[in-house]
Amino acid sequence: MKVSVIMGIYNCEKTLKESIDSLLNQSYQSFEIILCEDGSTDHTLQIAKEYVENYPQKIHLIQNETNMGLAYSLNRCIDSSKGEYIARMDGDDIAYENRLEKQMSYLEAHHECALVGSQVYLFNNTGIWGVRKPKIDPLKKDFLFSSQFVHPTIIIKKAILNQIGNYTVSKATLRAEDYELFMRLYAAGFTGHNLPDILLYYREDETTFKRRAYKYRLDEAKVRYNGFNKMKLMPLGLIYVLKPLIVGLIPQKVLTVLRRQGLGNETVDENPTRLYK
């Protein structure tokens, strides 16, 4: 098989089935799914076991004894993977049926590219509310403002992940493991590409925003400082190190309004279609 899709799953009983089904229905089928259950307190584990029972050749399950966090869980998945490429997916997002096909087609035609992501629809329980459009070919300086890849859209060469030490497991990266990883990749001389296609429905709602407590803003500032140093973006980067601390002072209701107005890389879809295509 070519691809190992890795998922750290935690308390996602309401969305996990839809997420896994979107993978099972892919037009590209040379892949396995590796789930790492991270100490859920709902029925996530039971749902995962049912899928493993129904698709024993396709889906594999790892269990953490206690909640260890996403980076730790993803590293366990990588260690157990058999694919040449690692694809990310979350237990509350939905992939287009041609997601893996399009991304693998690009990677196999562009061997100089370490990872590939895509554009995404932003959605919540009421439907699509926006679009996130990361830059097609991000440069180091683009990481000053924010991460340049939507984490659950990426596919990356496993050998490169292993070369840079996979995900960093630490308190500081608890809510920024993807940002930290991408900056290390670029600091090591690798580059990535975002397809212009929308290939994923990315769940972002009030619950997502509420998880971003101010202590995580402080940790992100540390991640930025270290990442910008490694990418040799200092001293200019010092200004951008403060960004999460400033944003964290803005009331949540105001942030939600700003996001829906399409600030930054987010633009509101004025004519949203049905959620699934």
Results as ranks from 00 to 15, higher is better:
M68Q: 15
Q163S: 11
V3E: 05
R259K: 10
F145I: 11
A114G: 05
L185A: 12
L45R: 14
M7I: 10
T191F: 04
Q148E: 06
E13F: 06
N229Q: 12
E50R: 13
Y55H: 14
H111F: 04
N125H: 11
L122D: 01
M68A: 09
V116A: 04
S4G: 09
M183N: 02
I47W: 05
K49Q: 15
L255Q: 15
K2Y: 00
H111V: 13
S147H: 10
G130D: 00
A172N: 12
E50H: 13
R224K: 15
I164H: 13
D137I: 09
Y106V: 02
K232V: 12
A114M: 14
L174M: 15
Q57P: 01
I34S: 00
G237I: 11
Y96F: 11
F149R: 03
N162W: 12
K2D: 05
T168E: 14
H151A: 11
I20F: 08
T267Q: 10
K253R: 10
K157G: 04
L107R: 12
D21F: 09
K2F: 00
G127S: 04
T191G: 08
L255R: 15
N67V: 01
T15N: 11
T267R: 04
C77F: 01
I94A: 04
I136K: 09
E204W: 07
E18M: 05
V257M: 03
V223M: 08
L181K: 07
V52A: 08
E206Q: 14
N98D: 09
Q148D: 07
Y167I: 05
F123M: 12
E84T: 09
Y106M: 02
D205N: 12
V268L: 07
N124D: 08
D92K: 05
Q63P: 00
K140C: 05
N125T: 07
R175F: 09
C36V: 07
Q119E: 11
I34C: 01
F228E: 08
E50K: 10
G237P: 11
D137Q: 05
T173H: 10
N25C: 09
L233H: 05
K49W: 01
K171P: 08
L100Q: 11
M104G: 01
L255C: 14
V150Y: 00
A95P: 02
Q26C: 09
K232I: 07
C36T: 13
Q46E: 13
R175T: 10
G248L: 06
M231P: 10
G248Y: 08
T208M: 13
R260Y: 02
D90Q: 10
I47C: 07
K14S: 08
G262D: 04
V131Y: 01
L181T: 05
G227P: 00
I128A: 06
E50A: 09
R184D: 12
S30N: 14
V3I: 10
Y55F: 08
N166G: 06
I59P: 03
I62E: 13
K135F: 08
L144P: 00
K58S: 00
L122I: 02
M89E: 06
